[in-house]
Amino acid sequence: MRTIIVDDEAPARALLREYLAGREDIQVVGECANGFEAVKAIAELAPDLVFLDVQMPKLDGFEVLELAEREVAVVFITAHEEHAVRAFEVQAVDYLLKPFSQVRLEQAIERAKARRAAGSPMPLKELAALAKPRRGPAARILVREGSAVHVIPTPELDLVEARDDAVILRSGGKTYRKQRTLSEIEAELDPARFVRVHRSFIVNVSRLARIELYAKDSRIATLQDGTKVPVSRTGYARLRELL
């Protein structure tokens, strides 16, 4: 199995490398020291198995998994027991607590092989949604483009638009595409700062310049950068409630 090791601590990576060195069925194709590298490596190297640390700079293990959007067996490795429940919710193959023995690691590898033979029981999209942290409104939104990860702090997000089966996020004049529904994004954003003004649009309230009546029951909102966004009747009611 093509395998990637992700841990921000060099000694922890060295230990895994050593444990794995003796196995013919494991081929370590990459090592990463942070979440960005991990997302890139998973996209470019198409591994079968990833050993993934949970606490890391930039992106934690769960965020890496959310962005992976690829069929890959994950074994989480951490010193913290409290993430175990979430790890199994996102269908992690196994959850190793540091420090762990070689025997315990081999068990995890066997489980990964069994999982690969059986196929993933849950659609990737649902897994990605489960991997999102669920603690209050998101402070940032992560978008992957090929092997690059963009971090959009939510205060800098201007507009979200539903398009086909994805959303287009607009921030500081740039646009990003993310494979999510508008409702999923809406649920993550702070309802005191973002309002769904239309079936297909969410706006950052602080970016609103003006709202004009356009026809009976329909209005047009203009953002500070001049972008025009349709506002439905219910969307207008939501805005009025907030402002």
């Binding site: 601590e9 000694p11 922890a12 230990l15 050593e18 010193a79 913290h80 607590l97 540091k98 420090p99």
Partner: peptide, 17 residues
């Protein structure tokens, strides 16, 4: 305690190399 777990893991890694 997580400091201990992480440190023990690092020690485990150093023992052979």
């Amino acid at each position: 305690p997580h400091f201990l777990f992480n440190t023990l893991n690092a020690i485990a890694s150093l023992t052979s190399s």
